[in-house]
């Protein structure tokens, strides 16, 4: 008979060669390789303190006739640790999603079950197709003070674990970063930069649920950011830029009334307009020096800003 056998890392495993007697002559192979006699106790295979590398197909043959008497697929792994669960609404007020992962791999298949309870109501969590560990919940009610309780249970052959999150509707509202951030010099203005951006496309109804924005900028030569908060509109003119210095600019967004700040947008670079030196050709070239930095996305440091208690998402 053949089947899958799950064992914990570090366990001691004993395999019997099917119906063969203890003293029968047998041969054991692992992934096609004969196993040394030292691992045998009579016809039993003894594996001490198994490790991940000992996962594989194990066969046992009768000594003389080479009949296959036993076959198993040994899977060495670990029980699941408490899963990491995060819920967030980036498309308020449509709904929110929850995503999860295991802090450490288990090396064997895991099965996730999520329950979302709002007061006494069980809510449906539409799962994304694997392997995405994520599901989506539609808001049936808005402005509710009743907390949501999300319980994620993970099970595998070696154990089970769970984690629970309880949160308020408003607390998990966190938009995606603003999109299409553009920064341009302003001709004849050596200290100005014009920045514009768009609402994150995932935000469904900016008119009824307007976003406010938080702009930060600094010349590359300095480490200290300058900040400005903007209650409406999706553009801003920086008027105190150092002439001729290249600037890095990012924008974050937040619902005007609730929730937390988004992560920082992708950084853009721009240098204010500079006057062409006189001896050069008459044609003054004004080059839009806008380039989108593809620097690796840097999660914004948590920055305390004037809106009491509001912290840019990190």
């Amino acid at each position: 008979d053949s089947h899958v056998q799950y064992e914990r890392v570090g366990a001691d495993v004993t395999m019997k060669c099917g119906s063969m007697d203890w003293d029968a002559a047998v041969t054991w192979t692992a992934n096609g390789t004969d196993i040394d006699e030292s691992h045998l106790n009579g016809s039993y295979l003894i594996l001490k303190n198994v490790g991940l590398s000992q996962s594989g197909q194990y066969f046992c043959y009768e000594g003389s006739s080479w009949h296959l008497k036993y076959q198993t697929n040994l899977r060495v792994g670990t029980p699941p640790k408490e899963p990491v669960l995060m819920c967030r609404s980036n498309n308020y007020p449509k709904g929110f999603y929850c995503s999860w992962h295991l802090p450490t791999p288990t090396y064997i298949p895991n099965f996730f079950n999520i329950s979302v309870i709002h007061g006494t109501k069980d809510m449906v969590c539409e799962k994304d197709s694997p392997p995405k560990n994520r599901c989506h919940i539609k808001y049936l009610q808005l402005f509710s003070t009743v907390k949501y309780k999300v319980t994620l249970t993970v099970t595998n052959a070696l154990g089970k674990n769970f984690t629970t999150l309880t949160f308020d509707e408003f607390a998990i509202v966190k938009p995606d970063p603003p999109e299409s951030v553009v920064a341009k010099p302003v001709p004849n203005n050596p200290r100005r930069l014009e920045v514009s951006w768009q609402n994150p496309s995932s935000w469904p109804d900016p008119e009824s649920f307007p976003l406010k924005f938080f702009l930060r900028y600094r010349p590359l030569i300095l480490d200290q950011w300058q900040h400005v908060e903007l209650s409406d509109g999706t553009s801003h003119t920086i008027t105190d830029a150092y002439a001729g210095k290249e600037y890095i600019i990012q924008v974050a967004a937040k619902d005007s009334d609730i929730g937390t700040w988004s992560d920082w947008s992708v950084a853009v670079h721009a240098t204010p307009w500079t006057e062409e030196p006189k001896h050069l050709t008459t044609e003054a070239q004004i080059t839009e020096t806008t380039s989108v930095s593809t620097s690796s996305f840097m999660a914004p440091p948590t920055t305390k800003i004037c809106d009491k208690g509001a912290v840019v998402g990190s």
Binding site: L140, L142, F143, S144, T145
Partner: peptide, 9 residues
């Protein structure tokens, strides 16, 4: 009075 409301829109 509960602020919660269904089909607010």
């Amino acid at each position: 009075p509960l602020a919660a409301v269904e089909r607010w829109d």
